[in-house]
Amino acid sequence: MTDTLESQAGEVLLEVDHVTLRFGGVVALNDVDFHIKKGEILGLIGPNGAGKTTCFNAMTGVYRPTEGEIRFDGQQISGRKPHHITALGIARTFQNIRLFPEMTALENVMVGTDARHKTSVLGALFKVWPRVRVDDVDLPRNRVKRAFSQTFGVSRHYAEERAGRRVAMGLLRFVGVADRANELAKNLPYGYQRRLEIARAMATEPKLLCLDEPAAGFNPAEKEELMGLIRKIRDRGLTVLLIEHDMRLVMGVTDRIVVLEFGTKIADGVPSEVARNPKVIAAYLGEPDDAA
């Protein structure tokens, strides 16, 4: 509970400001308005087709809102390109897993770390310029090269490659995929793929991590484990936006919940409040949620 109070006092990280999004005649989001505060875990729930994924897509630059604005860290982001938004600090996973299937788990995560790197085509081609200093762990093993690097520094390509690999392995360990780091993503078991997506998103060093039904298809034990992981992510200083169908789980892990139905926000508040909200009960009534 103290957690909740603290986060309520936190600064606003992301503002969804009266956003409407139409696909032809379909109104996927209708004047949706909410915000996320730094350091909280916000749940975004709602029945099928409520517009949750569409909301993610608008936030990450996949779609441009028809009306309204989205602001992140004080900057307007709606309508900007996805890779700009990633650079600003929003990362996401996909509801239907979208890894790079023919790349290894490690390479998948390294694509994420590359988002913060600067090696250009020329830098990778010639590996001479610009030169940077690195810590001892990242120096080459070979004695001669080591001495050379200590005097002249290493190329940025080399430094970033080493650092990227180290960070990526660390993240794989964090989510529990490290034992199969060199396997192709498409050959990993389902649960590994879900967690690998989280690692890849975290590798872009986001401030806000958006998870689109990360527990879909998990059994209750696996779901419980995943919720533990999400708490650990928050403890690392990330803000988390979580889409999840299983009400019980959402109640357990989130600080605040926003409920969507037919593209409209019908509730917004702490879990206990939302659970008692008659509109929410009505929305979920008669619609057995997939707690299986």
Binding site: H83, T86, F100, R116
Partner: peptide, 15 residues
């Protein structure tokens, strides 16, 4: 490679 595999996902990963 990331673009070849899934261009939209690559864009969201900052490529």
């Amino acid at each position: 490679l990331a673009i070849r595999e899934d261009e939209d996902a690559a864009a969201v990963m900052g490529v």
